[in-house]
């Protein structure tokens, strides 16, 4: 008899969410395996926060279904809420409340809370002292938000951009904390803008764009491009009109050229030293001053930018 697969912590099936005539989430399906760190990436407006808020029971799916720990976040709200921890992107505390008061209050709403002193230590919240919430720094508010998400000892935490605005040292502390959560059996779902954060932490990455899933896999799976190499060119002035098209012509059909924005482009394919030479000659010819020109394996950022690059004018306009 087969051992049953552990059921996923989150299962989203054909989710559709619209605001007016704008579709924020467009038939999204994805799963989050239990006891993992799963990162949800995507450009602004990709539908990340809407998807998270649907999992947290704040929004009712307009089509499709969402199950969190096997429960319906809206219908089974009372049963589900104690089992999840939520870190909002911003706010979530009274403007006049002190950090320790707020954390203690949230702890009191739970049956078996963590020791608040321990969380205050781990997230360096003692430095907040008697300062009211509205006068805490952005980083302090972030860390308090994370502490509030964890104090109830949840099985699953949703953290929306946990390290936005934190200095590098504190970011590392938060990363270690999230890894410890996974070790202790907590499932972590995080959204982030920092691709190195996803690459470093996540077991699994879902990349969203325009409300749909465009890629999914471990960071290694996503960045594995075989023998494909990537040349990245960043220039100091915007590209002259039509220039990217002439580079694409010069490189030939075996390579793919993607204009990432008006200052950078990326060439991928069987690139080698001679490809690099073509690019640098092209720069010289167009009087384009490179800020950086790199040849290397793809990282998660390359994958992300390729997948989510807006329709760009490679074909000239």
């Amino acid at each position: 008899m087969a051992v049953p697969e552990p059921s996923p912590a989150v299962r989203i099936d054909g989710l559709v969410m619209r605001y007016g005539d704008k579709t924020a989430v467009d038939g999204l399906s994805l799963e989050v395996a239990a006891h993992t760190i799963t990162a949800v990436l995507g450009p602004n407006g990709a539908g990340k926060t809407t998807t998270l808020e649907t999992c947290e029971g704040y929004r009712r799916p307009q089509a499709g279904s969402v199950r969190v720990l096997g429960l319906d976040p809206v219908a089974d709200r009372r049963a589900l809420m104690p089992r999840i921890g939520v870190m909002l992107q911003a706010g979530g505390a009274w403007s006049g409340v002190r950090a320790d008061e707020m954390l203690t209050h949230v702890a009191r709403l739970h049956a078996h809370p963590l020791d608040t002193g321990l969380l205050m230590d781990r997230l360096a919240l003692h430095e907040c002292g008697r300062t009211p919430y509205r006068r805490l720094s952005g980083g302090q508010q972030q860390r308090l938000g994370l502490a509030m998400a964890l104090v109830g000892r949840p099985e699953l935490v949703f953290v929306d951009e946990p390290t936005a605005g934190l200095d590098p040292q504190v970011r590392r502390t938060v990363w270690e904390l999230l890894e410890e959560l996974r070790t202790d059996g907590v499932t972590v779902v995080l959204t982030t803008h920092y691709l190195e954060e996803a690459e470093r932490l996540a077991d699994h990455v879902h990349i969203l764009d325009k409300g749909t899933l465009v890629a999914s896999g471990s960071p290694l799976e996503l960045t594995r491009g075989g023998t494909v190499a990537t040349i990245r060119l960043v220039v100091t002035q915007p590209f002259p009109p039509g220039a990217p098209q002439s580079l694409a012509d010069a490189l030939g059909p075996t390579t793919e050229l993607i204009v990432l924005d008006e200052h950078s482009l990326q060439v991928s394919g069987p690139a080698d030293g001679s490809t690099l030479a073509v690019v640098s000659r092209w720069c010289e010819h167009h009087g384009v001053l490179p800020e950086s020109l790199t040849l290397g394996q793809r990282n998660l950022e390359d994958v992300f930018l390729e997948l989510t690059a807006r329709e760009t004018e490679v074909s000239g306009s």
Binding site: H112, L114, E155, E180, D184, V186
Partner: peptide, 22 residues
Amino acid sequence: MSAGTFTPAPGAAPVARQVLAQ
């Protein structure tokens, strides 16, 4: 599973205690 610091132990406090705290 080892009993780590963050090992899950979820649960809401009884409503009466929540009302008092609030």
